[in-house]
Amino acid sequence: MTASHSPLFLDVWLEYNRRRWKLRPERVSLGQAGGTPRLDAVLYRGRGGRIEQPPRNVYLPVAFETAPDTGAHRRYTQWTELASRLGEQMAADGVRNTINLVPEIGDIRPWTWHGLLAGVKYTFLQDLPYDLAQASQSVRSRIKKAQKAGYTCRRSDSVADVSACLTETQERSGFDFDFPMDQLDEAQRFVGTEHFRCYTAYAPSGEPAASYVVLHNPGGWALAWIISTRTKHLPSGATQQLHHYIAQDLTDAGAAGFDLVGAGAESISAAKAGWGPRLVPYYFLQQYGARRMGAYVYRGVQEMSGRFGATAALRRAARALPWQRETPTRPT
Rank of each mutant, 00 (worst) to 15 (best):
H5T: 07
P7E: 04
L14F: 07
E15N: 13
Y16Q: 07
R19D: 12
R20F: 11
W21G: 00
P25F: 04
P25G: 01
R27P: 04
S29F: 05
L30F: 03
G31D: 07
Q32K: 10
G34L: 01
G34P: 08
P37M: 07
L39F: 10
L39K: 03
A41K: 01
Y44Q: 08
R45K: 15
R45L: 12
G49N: 00
E52S: 10
Q53T: 04
Q53A: 02
P54H: 02
P61C: 06
P61H: 06
A63F: 00
R74M: 08
T80W: 10
S84K: 01
M90S: 00
A91K: 00
A92D: 12
D93P: 02
G94Y: 08
G94P: 03
N97G: 08
N100Y: 13
N100M: 08
L101A: 01
L101F: 01
E104P: 02
I105D: 02
I108M: 03
I108E: 01
P110D: 06
W111I: 03
T112H: 02
T112R: 09
H114T: 06
V120Q: 15
F124Y: 15
L125Y: 09
L125W: 07
Y130E: 03
A133T: 14
Q137H: 07
R142G: 04
R142E: 13
K144E: 11
K144V: 11
Q147E: 15
T152K: 10
R154M: 10
R155F: 02
S156P: 07
S156K: 07
A160F: 09
V162T: 13
S163C: 10
A164Y: 04
L166H: 01
E168C: 06
E171R: 14
S173G: 09
S173M: 06
D176C: 05
F177E: 13
L184S: 06
L184G: 03
E186A: 12
E186Q: 10
F190S: 14
V191T: 04
V191M: 12
C198R: 03
C198P: 07
A209C: 04
A210K: 01
Y212D: 06
V213S: 05
L215I: 03
N217F: 01
W221N: 12
A224T: 08
I227N: 14
S228Q: 06
H233N: 11
H233S: 09
S236Y: 03
S236F: 06
A238M: 09
A238E: 10
H243R: 14
H244F: 14
I246Q: 03
Q248R: 14
L250R: 01
T251H: 12
D252N: 11
A253T: 05
A253G: 05
D259R: 04
G262Q: 00
A263K: 00
E266H: 11
S267F: 09
A271N: 11
K272P: 00
G274F: 00
R278Q: 14
V280N: 06
V297A: 13
R299C: 09
M304E: 13
S305Y: 05
R307P: 04
R307Q: 15
A312T: 12
R316A: 15
R319G: 11
E326T: 12
P328H: 01
P331R: 03
T332R: 14
